[in-house]
Design a protein around this nucleic acid. Structure first.
Lengths: 338, 338
DNA sequence: TTGTAGGCGTTATCAT
DNA sequence: ATGATAACGCCTACAA
């Protein structure tokens, strides 16, 4: 189908190797033929076959990226960070989605390996350090994002982020602070919870299990969480949410129940999506350095590709962004069954 | 590096071709050796090399998808629609982002072609029917989404969507309806504008240029649009926005200026993002059948790959979703310089 | 400076 | 049922 190096050779009356040399500007070739062949290649619409080339060079210049879902707002600057550095080093980045499904995640990694990608970056992994066992099955460099159990990874210090968030609430006078968690058992969720507990403890606030809710990190689950909290005898005066989507759901449900944020109740999110600064009220949240996260991930991957395996998980700081959704604890607070 | 078919052959004491047959369960091979070889392949952690295989089969089982940005909410169900059908037919889908930049878009298409992808689906193309001229440069099947100038494409009937939206506003009594457009000159923007004009005309409402604003389809540009509209002598009583992000920006700015939606002003979006139903107020918007859009795009691409080039642009209907952000025109309306 | 030959990992077509 | 051989498109010694 596609025009090959042989077609050009035939058209130019030279051997295929000469064409190859012309196209890769090999030193040992005359300027004249080089120009002539390049011209011809252009005219014939020649595009080199990377599969064929990679067979001999053992290099596909391809980075695979496993994402959770195409529309995850968390990805915007992350992917950009990865692409910038990748491109600078001659790699192309291709994404495929796992839908947070372990089986599919493995399938995608396998797909990348079958295509002999140079390496893979995975976000939202369901496998985690399971890749250590699978390393014989997938003998290609893998870097995980936000999975600190795996040695080749970058992660954001969510513990510290959570601590800053809850500390902020405590300083505003809140003592009944709800924790609206994400998918159960996940590291990132555990870190947030740990930070939450630490700050409560450091401030001599006894933990109240009825203020703990396990959600899914969606708007919908935030709505459910808030509605539930409105049914308990002593509703919280503040919510610390797994992420901004959850926070949006919580705010939405509180407003529907007639409460005002932050007057009657404070809400903190996590991620700092674009929406967070534009929502009404704008949302106090914990920002992850997503662009840098991508940059570091690809940098580590490139190191790995070059054979440097003497690496450790890398930690990046999180930062609390205070906006309108948090305020001093109110006298009134939420009324149950509001 | 990676274990090859030859390694297995050596270990099993058979020829490479036997291994190949065993792995592809060719009819003419004994069950015994097939089982033995598969076992061995498993143990050695063998993964076939698609680049090598594709060289001879001339088939990479790979679909490339050019997206604008990883975090575009429009993509969520679109990509899913593509992936489902692709997977059913044995293809893997990989995405790469163009950032709405023509140069980068071409670069990505080239990257897919170099890797000999079976075909490419492009969303948010900046090239459009320019691919007709480039078909010699990229001799691979291409399907565009929402670009009806190109023969191999699926698009949503935005004209009808816009008509429904503006008609809805007119029926609520609005006559000063602002049009907050998107990137200038784009087809999808022109369609929306055409629908807007048609309905005004059909209802004998004279078009007022001061109610036309060209934005960028972002929250930020929605904010600017609304702020601008608040400075004109006779502010609009309703906004028809390029998309939901713009609508969110408009609502946000109106609220900040002390206006209430929909009491003082109605706002309609476009896209029906998940956020639209959860925003406060929930947003009246035009829904695009994104999942179906993806399904049709990949179906057309598969036809194209199989050699059927007798195809036409396919049109899908848009649907108005009425929610809280629109209501009857008010006596008061917006006050300029509010 | 250019051509020839071998090989990358795989499949397909012959034989055997 | 299995093995040898050629070929896919490209690169790279080595030879000329």
């Amino acid at each position: 189908m596609s025009v090959s190096i042989k077609d050009i050779a035939r058209a130019a009356g030279v051997s295929p190797s000469t064409v190859s040399r012309a196209l890769n500007d090999h030193p040992r070739i005359s300027q004249a033929t080089k120009a002539r062949i390049r011209q011809l290649a252009q005219e014939l619409g020649y595009t080199p076959s990377l599969p064929a080339r990679s067979l001999v060079t053992r290099h596909t210049a391809t980075i695979g990226m496993v994402i959770t879902t195409a529309a995850d707002p968390f990805l915007a600057r992350l992917v950009q960070g990865v692409e910038e550095t990748a491109e600078k080093n001659g790699y192309s980045v291709f994404m495929s989605s796992s839908y947070r499904n372990a089986e599919r995640e493995l399938e995608v990694v396998r797909a990348f390996h079958e295509r002999r990608a140079s390496g893979v970056i995975i976000t939202g992994s369901q496998i985690d350090d399971g890749y250590l066992q699978l390393s014989s099955q997938f003998p290609l460099p893998i870097v995980l994002i936000n999975c600190r159990a795996y040695p080749y990874s970058v992660y954001v210090d969510k513990l510290s982020g959570a601590r800053q968030a809850v500390e902020h609430l405590v300083q505003l006078g809140h003592r009944r602070i709800a924790f609206i968690g994400g998918p159960h058992g996940h590291r990132s969720n555990l870190d947030r919870f740990a930070g939450y507990r630490q700050i409560l403890e450091e401030n001599n606030i006894s933990q109240n299990d009825s203020l703990i809710f396990t959600g899914e990190g969606t708007i919908e689950s935030g709505i459910q969480a808030a509605r539930h909290m409105l049914t308990i005898p002593q509703p919280p005066t503040a919510f610390f949410c797994f992420n901004d989507l959850t926070a949006i759901g919580v705010i939405r449900a509180l407003q529907q129940a007639g409460a005002e944020v932050p007057r009657d109740c404070s809400v903190v999110g996590f991620d700092d999506l674009e929406m967070a600064s534009h929502y009404c009220p704008s949302i106090t949240t914990v920002r992850q350095p997503t662009h840098r996260l991508g940059q570091r991930a690809i940098s580590i991957l490139l190191e790995l590709i070059q054979g440097n395996s003497n690496l450790q998980p890398e930690r990046l700081p999180a930062e609390l962004i205070v906006r309108e959704s948090t305020g001093p604890v109110s006298e009134a607070g939420l009324k149950p069954y509001a």
